[in-house]
Nucleic acid binder design. Structure first.
Lengths: 343, 343
DNA sequence: TTGAAAGCGATACCAA
DNA sequence: TTGGTATCGCTTTCAA
């Protein structure tokens, strides 16, 4: 069934050289005369030779692939727009360099960790991307333990011993808070993500710090979970409050959308009664009404940078040991879900 | 750097048997005494042996991975919710069977085809999934030419020579039309997808047929492209019409959302002035207002079925040559974007 | 039932 | 600059 493939042996035979010479010629290694190289290359193209990844993998001990495990619960999956652009960014970096992406999915944290373990155990990939890092993330010691090259995607490189791509979200959150303060708001709540996530914490801290900078009290912290449903729950929580905030900064757009929709169901006007800001800059933010004020992150660029860094690390482990690549922070985009404080 | 891995040689040595016996024992092949098998397995687990995918791949000529190329233009990427659940479904099927997904992305049709060619050329995967098939899709002859196992995801298996998973969208579209007719609509337009797509055509035909069934004329066909922007454009197109439809059936949800938003910007009430139905059942349909009436497809189930079928085909090419797996058609979900005909 | 040895398709070392 | 050959880690055939 499987067509007999053209191997390097065929190429060498046709060019009338040894396979070692053929290999060197094809890979642009020195030690081959130009005449030989040309002859080998002609033979290869005449035969339609494509090197076998399998043979190459075994002898070089490399897979020419990197791994990524997306962690999402099945119910959230369907609504999460993060995914596609992130993957697009990875592909953008991998494809020109001849690598492929092996994608796995974990439905919970243990599951995710096991996927990384598998990836490492059978050496299906040469390195992995780590995102949505948790405090004391077990994947970090795991990567060290098994000696798997890894690159983290983090808001801050502090205390992070792996090479990483850093895109701080603090400036964006601060800009959002500042924007709301400018609109006259003083009681600005924050709907956070789960505290076990580093980026969730960073956003809480950024909100706190910016509030303090304006002499405002940051006491309305509503725990969320980055989901649409979590955003809805936050609106319900607000409706129970004695001293209602007039503005909310959400840790991500999806939650902000949920919050806005639920707020409207509760009869509030957004932004008349309540201003709502998000974070991420997902397309959906321009679909809903009012359109969502947010901070535009760049998942595609982040992913591309991370993938490129990972390849650098793989191809030169020593040279790029503790590298940190900095990306511009997200920019505030003011749309229509934020407005003047009602008072 | 790379820890010296435990190989089958180590296991065989420790168990005091030949590597061929160790291999047979570990893979549950017959011809090994129970005592030997037990000894080998103990040795393997004591050493923490994990078979090398690379060695196995080379000798079995299999990659234990399947490929999928998602085709999306970069601008659409960010808003497309199809992706995540589809991938989730694939993973669900692959993971228990020890396979992995190699994911590529094409930003246009030529790009996509090249990705499939690469995948085939270097045999990085044992088979591929083909979705969003076009009329005379070049990937079909390509797969035959290179002898790559492939499974199609199609609305109808007619004239489709590859094994496939079939989920017809016609019943759902028909149900949507019927629902609108029940609400008194007689001038029902259709916003289609690009005619080069088989599933776009199927939906047009389904709309036509159901209109005819009710003795209605199906002359308002608005060409779309499955995107949010395309939906907006459709609303603009409608606003130019002399004889405006009172209802629109969109070929997918994203376009329906765009249409609704734009319609509202144009000052129309949905569904008061215009009823809008979608197709897919994306989560976003429940976020917007009015909530979107749609047909609930099941991308996760479709993907899982397709991936499972592909593995069957890979593992037994003869046995499952022309297999067709049928999936239940999507169900109509009436929400709030469709209502009584104004008149 | 067991073991020895020949591939699989490349890379890379070492003589010639 | 070349060519021969060991090697990567496994599967599989064929004798013993």
């Amino acid at each position: 069934m499987e067509t007999d493939r053209v191997t390097i042996v065929d190429v060498a035979a046709r060019a009338g050289v040894a396979i070692s010479s053929a290999s060197a010629a094809l890979n642009g290694r020195p030690g081959v005369s130009e005449a030989t190289r040309a002859r080998v290359q002609r033979a290869a193209s005449e035969l339609g030779y494509v090197p076998s990844l399998r043979g190459r993998s075994l002898s070089t001990k490399r897979a020419f692939a990197i791994g990524f495990v997306l962690q999402r619960s099945l119910d959230v999956l369907e609504s999460d727009p993060f995914f596609a652009s992130f993957i697009g960014g990875i592909e953008q970096a991998l494809s020109p360099r001849g690598y492929a992406l092996v994608l796995h999915m974990g439905t919970n944290e243990r599951d995710t960790e096991n996927r990384y373990r598998e990836l490492a155990a059978n050496r299906r990939v040469d390195g992995v991307l780590l995102n949505e890092l948790r405090v004391d993330d077990p994947r970090l010691p795991l990567m060290n333990e098994i000696g798997m090259p890894a690159v983290g995607i983090v808001p801050s490189a502090e205390g992070f011993e792996l090479p990483c791509v850093r895109q701080p979200s603090a400036p964006g959150v601060a800009a959002m808070v500042r924007h709301l303060v400018d609109q006259g708001h003083t009681n600005i709540a924050h709907v956070s993500g789960p505290a076990r996530f580093v980026h969730a914490r960073e956003r809480v801290e950024a909100w706190r710090a910016e509030m303090a900078r304006h002499g405002l009290r940051a006491d309305t912290l509503i725990p969320g979970d980055f989901t649409y449903q979590g955003g809805r729950a936050a609106a319900d929580a607000i409706s129970q409050m004695v001293d209602r905030p007039t503005a909310v900064v959400c840790a991500n757009d999806l939650a902000a959308v949920g919050l806005i929709i639920r707020a409207q169901e509760l009869g509030w006007d957004v932004p008349g009664d309540l201003s709502v800001g998000g974070y991420d800059g997902i397309a959906m933010g321009t679909y809903i009404r009012p359109t969502l004020s947010t901070v535009q992150a760049a998942p595609r660029r982040v992913a591309a940078a991370a993938a490129n860094l990972l390849l650098d690390v793989i191809e030169d482990p020593a040279g790029s040991a503790g590298r940190v690549v900095d990306l511009a922070p997200g920019q505030l985009i003011v749309r229509h879900s934020t407005g003047k404080c009602p008072k």
